[in-house]
């Protein structure tokens, strides 16, 4: 047995898929703590306030449902892409990746429109803690979506160049872990925001 055979080949070669997946899961665990802590902080602030939203402040826009549908759909297309590449169906992989990226961008557009609508209704981050917590929570999530779109775009481009096969497609698997995580975080955050106001 030579040093590292199978266990780690070279410092420049990609890590074996199971190694990479464990790494991604730990990253997701760490980020879960970030979102969990921010939601706990929100819950504590909410519990101290008698009226939420404060008098004269708008309710959260119903168009948040649009964002929710978009990100849920992107999770479905992401999973379709994973299934496609595992079965070696390249065309379906490309379609799945492209749709996921587009839905991700649309989610951000939808969120931006929501923010504009609230600002127009005089709810800014500086207005009160109702506004502050809303922008911090949704902004934190949106920042992670931006962070996810970059690798998603890279993997999509590689899929179009035919870099992935049923045997080798680590990028697709890692994107899927992260993207489903973003979906779950949004659903939990959305539920907390809606149920608490």
């Amino acid at each position: 047995m030579t040093a590292g055979d199978g266990r780690n080949g070279g410092r420049d070669e990609p890590a074996p898929i199971e190694t990479g997946r464990l790494g991604m899961r730990l990253l997701v665990a760490a980020l879960s703590m970030l979102f969990a802590a921010s939601l706990v902080a929100y819950g504590l602030i909410r519990s101290r306030a008698a009226v939420w939203p404060p008098a004269g402040m708008p309710h959260l826009p119903a168009t948040l449902w649009v964002s929710t549908v978009l990100i849920l759909a992107s999770s479905v297309t992401m999973q379709a892409a994973v299934r496609a590449v595992r079965a070696g169906r390249e065309r379906a992989l490309r379609a799945g990746m492209l749709l996921t990226t587009l839905l991700g961008v649309l989610f951000l557009v939808s969120q931006t429109l929501n923010w504009f609508a609230l600002v127009a209704a005089h709810l800014t981050a500086k207005a009160n803690l109702y506004g502050f917590t809303f922008y911090i929570l949704t902004g934190l999530h949106a920042a992670h979506v931006v962070g996810g779109l970059i690798p998603l775009a890279v993997v999509t481009a590689r899929a179009f160049r035919g870099r992935y096969s049923a045997e080798f497609h680590p990028g697709v698997e890692y994107c899927a872990i992260y993207w489903h995580f973003l979906d779950v975080v949004w659903v939990v955050m959305f539920a907390v925001l809606m149920l608490s106001s």
Partner: peptide
């Protein structure tokens, strides 16, 4: 921002 959840004047702690 000059506003935050640690400020008791605004209902923070």
């Amino acid at each position: 921002l000059g506003i935050g959840i640690f400020d008791p004047a605004l209902g923070g702690d």
